[in-house]
Design a protein around this nucleic acid. Sequence first.
DNA 1: CGCCATTTTGAGTAACTTCAAACTATGTGG
DNA 2: CCACATAGTTTGAAGTTACTCAAAATGGCG
Lengths: 256, 256
Amino acid sequence: MRQPDAGPKPGDHPLLRKIGCFTRLSAAENEALRGALATRRSFEARRPMMSEGERPDTVFAILEGWACRYRVLADGRRQITAFLLPGDLCDSPMFVLEAMDHSVGTLSPVIAAELVQDDILALTEASPRITRALCWDVLVQAAIQREWTVNVGRRDASERMAHLFMELFLRLRAVGLVEDDGFEMPATQSDLADALGITTVHTNRMLQALRASGIVSLERKRLVVRDIGKLRHTAMFDGRYLHLDGEGAHLSANED
Amino acid sequence: MRQPDAGPKPGDHPLLRKIGCFTRLSAAENEALRGALATRRSFEARRPMMSEGERPDTVFAILEGWACRYRVLADGRRQITAFLLPGDLCDSPMFVLEAMDHSVGTLSPVIAAELVQDDILALTEASPRITRALCWDVLVQAAIQREWTVNVGRRDASERMAHLFMELFLRLRAVGLVEDDGFEMPATQSDLADALGITTVHTNRMLQALRASGIVSLERKRLVVRDIGKLRHTAMFDGRYLHLDGEGAHLSANED
DNA sequence: CGCCATTTTGAGTAACTTCAAACTATGTGG
DNA sequence: CCACATAGTTTGAAGTTACTCAAAATGGCG
């Protein structure tokens, strides 16, 4: 439950920190990335960042706060298809697809770095390792998306919730946002419901069940994992899909 | 419901045909791709192509038949997360991720082209347009995955089924495999159930409902769309996520 | 304090599952 | 060509999970 000893230091840039789970970048590469991420943009809580149908020409990297991808059906039903946490890229169209097929909005206040197409081209041309790292992020997000399909398709409500909490716990820990086995969770029960494919009422009941079993607690937007063994067990969690155990986890820095 | 007039001719390679929906390649690019796809491999029906935990060093492009991505939970529950149709790439690890986090298996006999890492590197170095096209395929598969999460999370059983049938219809039509408003569908009701996140029994009942409404028929592994208007309506289908309306749909060939 | 969003509770209902069995195709070996 | 085996489809009835609707309680914030 603790940070790994050789883990990233607090104050690191979340994106660099996450990429560090996959590969070690040289000091020069780190600086190049840090430079490209200099342009900041802030969003208030519960505001759109990109909307369905738009053709954005930038990619955001979340630095602080939570956002989510979602789709709203004609009759108002909403499905959240991803939580975007610090270090995540809102990669979606990646300058290749015609238009956004879903929306992205903030759940909490968000600070994001804005990357324009030229930044990305410059970065990827400068370093194949950065190219691989960005590619890795896209593929991991796709893997997470597959797991969400499994989650919603084949697990019952409490398993789903436990699984989501395990995932959030590990993803946030990877970017240094877990403290004392807990993390800030700006999503409301209604947001969780839309991510889990159940109703708000049922979300509330399942949450109470997890609380009653002493598995998690959730107060004042802070989720604390009380018993990660039980949480992992009720979720039947297998974290391989998060691919958090890349080179970066065991190789030392490689200065070329 | 008919093939578009300027659509791809029969006999085309399904991958080239699908890429043609996105962009026009030059004759030289076409030939390069065709050459790289020369190595064929056959699989019998219901056989594994890649298994969870493996680290494959090749990418398959399906030429004939259906395969699927799936995950099996510890207690045997299975979720199919994608159908892989002719023209689709089994891109998964793309030489970046450590190991397969899911399995791929055939549903029918499959013929696939085998691309090794060097082939892909050679192709992408030779032509940025091919790079973009491969990238496009990855992003479209991700978009489809998001829509599956929406489907399983927020639609009821008959809507889900209708939505899946609409998607299959459009994807297969894009590669020229729809004839007389119908297509070969090797998936069993049990496979459909595992893709839709419902039981086999319920799949059967929903299928009967769609049949009874005169929307589709399914006999001898052939699905016929009898009323695409009603099908689209019950699915509340919006096909933008398939991104089948790229440059290729309206630009003419560009020989450079 | 009072407002609004969010969480919580209760009771009745609908959708889907489970289990078990019968039925129907399709292919195989005699 | 039939008998049999097997995989897949269909049916029925009872059980469970999760939904709906409606209202009450709580919490954060100006």
